[in-house]
């Protein structure tokens, strides 16, 4: 439900364009930065997806991303643990920033396909590039966004 807190033991995924990855394919903090107009960072809540295993969850995320974005070669889906994000940013940021991850399902919006696991990382802004760099440090795994 909208506004529900995503549990710290759960995982989220983030689409990472090749524009935000190094030449070696490593995801950088730019993948977790906001634009000036953004209120939160868009992610997908993986445990929310009713799929049998991890591969199927990632495949479902691919399907939804593909309906919204032009996926290019070398784009990645980064997987992160919610608790790791919150703890790492709180302990490493100079102002001990408290982030929160909230469920923001997209449903019945005529302009886009339903995205029921859609969620947002709240608590930082465009002017906080360090937060993106810290989040990038706790990426657990990456998968190709386009097969």
């Amino acid at each position: 439900m909208t506004g529900d807190t995503v549990p710290t033991e759960d995982h989220i995924s983030r689409y990472c364009s090749p524009l935000r990855c190094t030449e070696e394919g490593q995801v950088t903090g730019a993948a977790f930065q906001l634009r000036e107009i953004d209120e939160y960072l868009s992610v997908n809540w993986l445990e929310y997806l009713q799929k049998a295993n991890w591969q199927e969850k990632i495949q479902e995320v691919r399907r939804v991303l593909n309906s919204k974005l032009r996926l290019t070669a070398n784009a990645k889906i980064a997987v992160l643990n919610v608790g790791d994000i919150i703890d790492h940013v709180r302990t490493k940021s100079p102002d001990h920033r408290n982030l929160s991850v909230l469920h923001e399902p997209i449903e019945d919006d005529p302009s886009q396909e339903d995205d029921l696991s859609h969620s947002g990382i709240y608590g930082f802004k465009y002017e906080d590039p360090m937060i993106g760099d810290l989040i990038a440090e706790v990426v657990q795994e990456t998968y190709p966004a386009k097969l």
Binding site: L19, T22, T28, G29, A30, Q33, R35, E36
Partner: peptide, 22 residues
């Protein structure tokens, strides 16, 4: 070199978690 979400140039020199300049 990567692009920021605003399509600005973002350059990064990083050799370790405690040697990072972006």
């Amino acid at each position: 070199v990567v692009l920021s979400p605003s399509n600005n140039i973002r350059a990064q020199w990083r050799t370790a978690p405690n040697r990072h300049f972006a």
